[in-house]
Computed example of a mutant assay.
Amino acid sequence: MKPFQLNYIADANGLLREALQAWGISKRTLASVKYGGGQILVNGNEVTVRHPLVIGDAVTVVFPLEELGKGLQAEAGELEIVYEDEALLIVDKPPMQNTIPSREHPSGSLANFVAAHFEQQRIPATLHIVTRLDRDTSGLVCIAKNRHIHHLLSVQQQEKKMSRRYEAFLHGQLQQGEFTITAPIGRKNFSIIEREVRDDGQFAETEVSLLKVYSEFCHAMLTLNTGRTHQIRVHLAHIGHPLVGDDLYGGTREMIGRQALHCRRLELLHPVSGKALAFESRIRADMAALIR
């Protein structure tokens, strides 16, 4: 297996440590390179972070090989790959599939299938799922192929340079065309799974854009400005318009057998090249059937 590596050209004189920091390589990542079997090369020669750089020097960071977590088994299965390169994997997850294994569903998860894909492609990485979806929720999922790439994408999320847009069907009829829900979310007392809006919760913000109103529900586009667990589900229930099919938060499954939520669009900057990327996914047949 070939280890993941990144190449840079020094654009200023100074210590290598300072250049690595400017390129987004954290102290934690550097420690893993130093003690985990990686290398830092300047013009092909292995050096330490105290090495003095000269403009034009070629720097290569060779990252340590990663091992699959002991609790995750590679399992052959169908993946809908939307985009893939040496750093990223974007997949379209079907509904009723866990993103990662759980006690109730120990196999058949997206993570199991991706692990098998990595094995087949001889990619020396464990699973770094950047944008996780609930079991019921379908749509786009972003996966990093290296711990450092995961770190860079997490920074993008914190800096709001990554955008996720969801298509959803809500119970009732919204009265406003566009609005923002800003309400803190925390774990519900005495529950492992449920979340709720509560004063001591974490800041959470969801933008809502109404697409069309139907007799029993409405069709909306939702944008996450934060990424709290069950954020969309909790926020919509909080304003009295739970997701159609979301029986955990007040919806009913009379029209559809799962929460009617789909990650429709994913936008991000490529963590290596910096190029703007955008991906689209159509809603699944069970959701499309509601508006035919």
Rank of each mutant, 00 (worst) to 15 (best):
G37T: 05
S107N: 05
T226S: 02
L224C: 04
M1L: 13
F118H: 10
G77Q: 03
G245I: 00
I283M: 15
C218G: 06
T131S: 12
L152N: 08
K161T: 08
P184L: 07
A276D: 10
S102R: 08
Q156L: 01
L152Y: 06
L6T: 12
N189W: 07
S107R: 13
I81Y: 07
F217W: 11
P95F: 07
A58L: 12
K27M: 09
A237W: 03
Y214W: 05
D85W: 09
Q39I: 00
L89M: 01
Y83T: 01
A168W: 02
G227Y: 01
L68S: 10
H105P: 02
L268I: 13
L211P: 00
Q259P: 01
H151T: 13
F190Y: 13
L140G: 05
R164M: 15
S215C: 06
L152G: 06
H262M: 04
Q176H: 03
L20V: 06
I149W: 12
L277I: 12
L30N: 11
A19M: 13
A285V: 11
F190E: 13
A144D: 14
K161V: 01
D57L: 12
R233K: 05
Q120S: 09
I185H: 02
R122S: 15
S191E: 10
H148P: 10
L53C: 05
L277T: 05
F118N: 06
Q21Y: 09
P101W: 04
Q231P: 05
L224F: 01
A31N: 10
T252A: 14
G36M: 04
M96E: 14
Y83N: 03
F217H: 06
V54F: 07
Q158T: 07
D136W: 03
T226D: 05
S109C: 03
W23V: 10
R264P: 00
T223N: 05
D246T: 11
H117D: 08
A125D: 03
K70Y: 12
S209H: 11
N146V: 07
I192A: 15
M1V: 11
D246V: 13
E119D: 14
P271H: 13
L133E: 02
A116N: 15
G177Y: 00
T223Y: 00
P95T: 03
E196Q: 14
K212A: 14
H238T: 06
I185T: 04
S32W: 03
R147D: 13
L222K: 02
R264C: 00
R103K: 14
V91Y: 00
L170K: 06
R253K: 15
M287W: 02
L41Y: 04
G139F: 04
H219F: 02
R187P: 03
Q121K: 15
V42F: 00
V47I: 08
G139E: 07
E104S: 15
I291V: 13
A116F: 12
V155G: 03
G274P: 08
V62Y: 02
F118A: 07
V141F: 11
A288P: 02
A289T: 08
Q120R: 12
A260Y: 01
K212R: 15
L68V: 11
Y166M: 10
V272Q: 09
Q175E: 12
R135A: 10
H219D: 03
F63C: 09
